[in-house]
Design a protein around this nucleic acid. Sequence first.
DNA 1: TACACCAATTTGGTATCCCAAATCGAACCG
DNA 2: CGGTTCGATTTGGGATACCAAATTGGTGTA
Lengths: 238, 238
Amino acid sequence: MPDTVPSQASGLFERMRSAILTLELAPGERLTERGLEAAFAGSRTPVRAALMRLENEGLVLREGHAGRGWVVAPIDVAEIRSLAELREAVESMAVRLAVERAVDADLDAVAELLTAGGPAADEDEGLRAGSDFHVELATLSGNPLLADAVRGAMTRLARTRWLEVRTAASRAQARDEHQAIVDALRARDADRAAALVAAHIRDTNERLVHFLTAERRRLRGHGLSIVDGAPARPTRAN
Amino acid sequence: MPDTVPSQASGLFERMRSAILTLELAPGERLTERGLEAAFAGSRTPVRAALMRLENEGLVLREGHAGRGWVVAPIDVAEIRSLAELREAVESMAVRLAVERAVDADLDAVAELLTAGGPAADEDEGLRAGSDFHVELATLSGNPLLADAVRGAMTRLARTRWLEVRTAASRAQARDEHQAIVDALRARDADRAAALVAAHIRDTNERLVHFLTAERRRLRGHGLSIVDGAPARPTRAN
DNA sequence: TACACCAATTTGGTATCCCAAATCGAACCG
DNA sequence: CGGTTCGATTTGGGATACCAAATTGGTGTA
């Protein structure tokens, strides 16, 4: 297996992506290809490639009438709500399939994620693990498309991790809910597992949305663009 | 509204995409950037951009250990099965949300798709309409992410339309099932609508998969690469 | 005959260069 | 002064030239 050469452009992509996810590049910030070319080392071609990849991860957007200019995707409360609905659909299905397809060893591996680091895990670790847990869970479905969908959703949600304050209690609750999901899987109880997953996603999301709408003003003051893009009415796009 | 200039590259993308979807570029066929540069008019930069976009629509893949070379995505029976599961999850959810959010006028508009062209619609039209119906249905959820997911799935499935033989009877059945879904929506019966959607997707998919596995040998003879990528076991990717 | 080795070619990756459109200013006119 | 026009600058889109890696063919040797 001739390990893939980092290829330099992948590096650029990773660094830009990382800069966005850590809010080093603020949501709503305008980007120019030439500016990025300078900020990160590397010339325009790989920068453009990276931008395109970031675009379809939903982390950057084209702006302006004539497609001129790029923007770091604002944190969009409407999008976050939509993501939760998508996750509920996809992860519920994934967990149902996992009940049928995953063997106990797989479940053990995922369960291990929950205890890894123990209660000593710091906030950052805890949240990353939370994200990973959902992706690993979806992977157990044996359906790579479901796993990818969850991975994509978690990526789009990742930036909020730096905003929302998570208490030790809320972390513990998340861990308990994750544990309950694994237990349901072990019991091969698809309905219960799916219901727990849906409830967990809904609760987590509700907390997040409440937080963002409440703190929107303050966060904006810190230079972050937080918008609420859409009505809950069918959008007749295109 | 300064209408967007076709921008040439979009044109290239559309033409390449169309060539793939119509099987003019055969599944499994190897592509080189320079070859495409010649085949379609336009130089490497836009060709490259188009390839990247096609890549994340899942229509082309990078091949080879060192990322060298592109391939028109083979028709992968395992992927098709996975797509059906994804669609079942997403479209069921979408239809549930549509029951809550869509107004009657929206439903009327979608219902109109079913009768448009009437029974005289030829095979091609009928199938395109079938695909559009599912996308429009998902749009009624008011959740653009769900609609996008369905659109993406239908794109990946689009190539099979040229392979599978659809009789007048099967087209009529599909239309009836679509009609039944709309009726359930009109009745604001979320459970029934979701169940009908799930059953419809499952049935349609089962027929398709049966057809492909049965005809795989013959279709391969025509130069098409049809594979069955995956086991139904959780894939421990990465 | 099989195999190892080398050179030409091909390929994707990268770095620039040029271009037309759009934006932003400043000078100019009313 | 306010509004407009014209031009310099900036920006993304496209075209090419160059590079290193890798494939490919052939050739000469054991």
